[in-house]
Simulated scan of single mutants.
Amino acid sequence: MAQTLDQKRAALAWGYASAGIQAHGKSYKGLAKGASMLIMNSGLMPTLAFYNGKSKREPTPEACLLNDLMAGLVQRLNPTPTPRDFAGFMNFLQKMESCDYLRYTDEALELLKWLRQFVDAVPQPAEGGQR
């Protein structure tokens, strides 16, 4: 039986939420909960650029969320050619038609809808491991 789009997004978001919470705890949770509003207020590309700017020292929760968003968009929308890094992804977004850019923005918001819910639901790391 085929999966619905929401099931596919949920599966992606569950994996990202689990890994993000495990690695960064409450910091990742806060970023994931606020990312949708940041995209709606500033736009997709400015939001990705903001997270990239905060990702200079690895590993950061911002770098984790940035990578999750880019990987989720690539996996869900299967762009050709597939951007391999942040600069390539931004260049890819800059050159696309406006209707495609809106599709990427909508997909990011849909993925974040699931991610925002799942960061509360995934198992939390032990008290000593949370940041």
Rank of each mutant, 00 (worst) to 15 (best):
E97L: 06
G72P: 00
Q75L: 09
L73K: 04
A71E: 02
P81S: 12
L66H: 03
L66F: 01
S98F: 14
R76H: 09
T80M: 13
V74E: 09
P79S: 12
E97W: 02
P79R: 10
T105Q: 13
R84I: 13
P83A: 06
N78Y: 12
V74Q: 06
Q75N: 10
N67R: 04
Q75S: 11
D100P: 00
T105V: 01
L77I: 07
L65Y: 06
T105M: 09
D68G: 01
L77H: 08
M70Q: 09
M70T: 08
D100Y: 00
D68R: 08
M96D: 08
N91V: 07
A71F: 00
N67C: 01
N91Y: 09
Y101T: 05
L77Q: 09
T82C: 14
M70S: 05
C99A: 12
P79K: 10
T80I: 13
L66A: 02
S98C: 06
M70E: 11
L102N: 02
A71I: 00
N78W: 10
T105N: 07
L65A: 06
G88R: 08
S98W: 13
T105P: 03
N91K: 15
N91H: 14
G88C: 11
Q94L: 10
D100Q: 06
G72R: 00
L66T: 03
F86Y: 13
G72K: 00
T80K: 15
D85I: 02
T82I: 14
D68T: 03
G88V: 05
V74G: 02
M96Q: 15
L65T: 09
E97T: 06
T80R: 15
R76G: 03
T80H: 15
S98Y: 14
D100H: 01
G72Y: 00
R103T: 09
M96K: 15
C99N: 09
T80G: 11
P83C: 05
C99M: 07
Y104P: 02
L65V: 06
L102G: 00
G88P: 13
D100C: 01
K95F: 03
